[in-house]
Design a protein around this nucleic acid. Sequence first.
DNA 1: CGGATCGAC
DNA 2: CTATGTCGATCCG
Length: 872
Amino acid sequence: MDDMKKVANSSCNDGFLLRMGLNDNKAGMQGLDKEKINKIIMEATKYSREVASSVQLCTKDPQRTPQIYKLYARCIYCCTSARLVFQLLVSSVQVDKLVVELEQTRNLSNTIVHIDMDAFYAAVEMRDNPELKEKPIAVGSMSMLSTSNYHARRFGVRAAMPGFIAKKLCPHLTIVPLNFEKYGKVSKEVREILAEYDPNFMPMGLDEAYLNITEHLEERLNWPEDRRRFFFNTESPTGVDKDDMNMSDKFNEGECSSSPVLFEDNTSHLKQRSQSVENSVVFGTSAEEVVKEIRFRIEQKTQLTASAGIAPNTMLAKMCSDRNKPNGQYRITPERQAVLDFLKDLPIRKVPGIGKVTEKMLKALGIVTCSELYQQRALLSLLFSEISWRNFLDISLGLGSTHLEKDGERKSMSTERTFSEINRAEDQYSLCRELCRDLAQELQKEGLKGKTVTLKLKNVNFEVKTRASTVLSSVSTEEEIFAVAKDLLGTEIDSVAPHPLRIRLMGVRVSGFLSEEEKKYQQKSITSFLKSGKEIGFLRLQPEKSNQEYFTKSSEASHRGSFFDQKRAARLLNSENLPPNEAVGKQLFHDRKSSANFVEETKKLTGLQSSNVCKIFTCPVCFEEQSSDNLEELNRHIDECLNGTFVKDTMEISKNDKSREDTLNTLPQFRNENENGDEWQKNKTDQLARTDQSASTSDSFTNNSTEKFAQIVSDKSHREQQPSNLSDIARNVCMKECLFPKRISQGNEDHFEKTEHTGGTSLSCFFEAKEGSVLVCPVCNTEQKTTSLVSFNRHVDVCLNKGLIQELTEKKDFPAENYSMENQNRVGALSKEQQCTNASQGTKRSGLTTSQSVSKKTKLSNSKHTIKTFFK
DNA sequence: CGGATCGAC
DNA sequence: CTATGTCGATCCG
């Protein structure tokens, strides 16, 4: 039996039957090196890049995309302003609190498998036409390739590459047209096998699938050996069935034998031909063995190889299947440390969901690997939307969905076509009608009707436009859709008149299938309830969700847009002036205020709002009570307090610099030592709980010009009783919820929980002012007429970004490094003494280290260290 | 809601 | 002087 297992092991790793010529390296097929490949591609794409860049910002240039500019603008501001350094500390505390919670909900109990057929289309074509086996081939058309075999890949021929470029890279390349029917058939065969291991498995396209084999593994433990025995298919060796009739006969025969009782059927079926034990193999009961078995059976049945990944969640499983491709598998064992080890040096680009653009943006921040993603979590929470940074956090912790969700109903259906230039309106209308006809056919097949029709156009300069229109009654027929699409098209034609509309692509989409009455009804009732409680419509209430759900789904659009109001609500709620210690306890032990009751909270809120109780105010810096009811005065006090502390800290640390090291990296996420999860958990909690130890924030700042600030404050923090450093102040502010509003979510009828919420999506949420006061934009220094704080904040944001982007753009050949990377490099290159000197000097101005950038940055942040607008 | 963009296969 | 098609999700205004 052991011997047989060995057979299974070895044969699995090397491929059972087929090589398909994937691994051999025959003479004349040595491929091209990277340099050559790039050269050819650059040459071949010169024109299209020119066209694109003449019209728009060249999106191929990573450092010139609008997103990067925006990111830099925000980043510069963050690194420049003491206020935002402070903010960074606050968010760091918040984010780490979330990390602890996420860590507690980590679920390693599932075994998720991701199966990925190797070069699927190409492999099928090679199987069915042996002549192709030794050649480099690609499947697709001259304009676009879907996939290529491994021969072709050595020449740099990849999926999603235009065929004509591929031809330049590899003149001998054979391009085979797509044949989806055939792939569908093969895919069905594979799915039949997969269904035996998880009836609810989730196919992703034709060549991929996720399985949850947790249950199968349990059952399998009791299976007799014979039930895990499989026979080599001695019939139909590679390349025998050349004609399709033969294939489909075989297929049908196979289908008969793969009923739910396939094990018995299959073995007896095979035994007729080859009963001898040498022709069989027995698989074990471990997850690895199961997956080997699956891959063995796929290869036996389809003559195609698959790669697989095994992990505790889908995200990890997917990345695992990529690891030993082709024809291999990889497993992440269900241990926290194994997950982190896997992620340690993994480039973020490998993560599903991180594409070209996100990769570039993160790279601009110096983030390439998952561990760097974790280190910068606090910064990311300020620079990106909540959805994005929480996703980043999940990624860097290796969290993902542990169950396979049944794919919901389809949300839209569309069809589009690319063609050589069409500029006659007549032709465009008839083309549009044609698209509508095709779409209507497909819609009716599924019996769908939609309310929104979207027209998509791409002009000859590759600019893409979409125009949508929502009608009251659902549409589904050609005429109905065309009626809407025609108008949209007409509007576009008119908009460029008298010139013709010169397009190279047109598409029509229908969406809006589902009536979301349920949602609307709920929201409506909640809002009206709140309204009745004295105009606190800004409160967002949600049905209580499980942690899991909360972390993955907490991000409906409805949560955005009113941070300001939420912040105010939270502040009012908390203005009962809890003693700091009590507040500390509450936060640190994740007391979710289980007794909080909605009615009471509401009363407090409304009461506070009307009576303006907030007259006694404790400064979070010096802890002295301030009795003024003039908010500006209070804010000024806090500002002075804060700046005093900040400067003092900085000066001191520049003299005494030695104890800094040990506070740095005390809590690196990706350590090598072995620790079990519980211990780590306890450590982490302890660290957070120790008020005199703010090292937990320090690892968020590595590779950033704000690093020294963090070091300074974290270093100082444990020496003094008084909370006289920024880090502690940040903490206090967190506790008091002055900065970040808490989202109040609805439990059952009378039971509510508070869950944390950090909303640092844009700079704008930092500014706040007393009602009726004059609003002066700190960037452009002009008085803003608006009375709406939201719109004022928007102005500041836009103003800031505009100013920065303008300056940056004016400067020819804007080198991104000047503003972020180089900054870091210089800091890195300086000696420690210099760093300290710089730090103290920089603090007085704007916290910069490079003199080059100082002037423009101080100009932009002329409100300097004021945090006055924080408190209300 | 409408429009643009990203990401995946 | 040539860079897909289709779908879902997100973000912004």
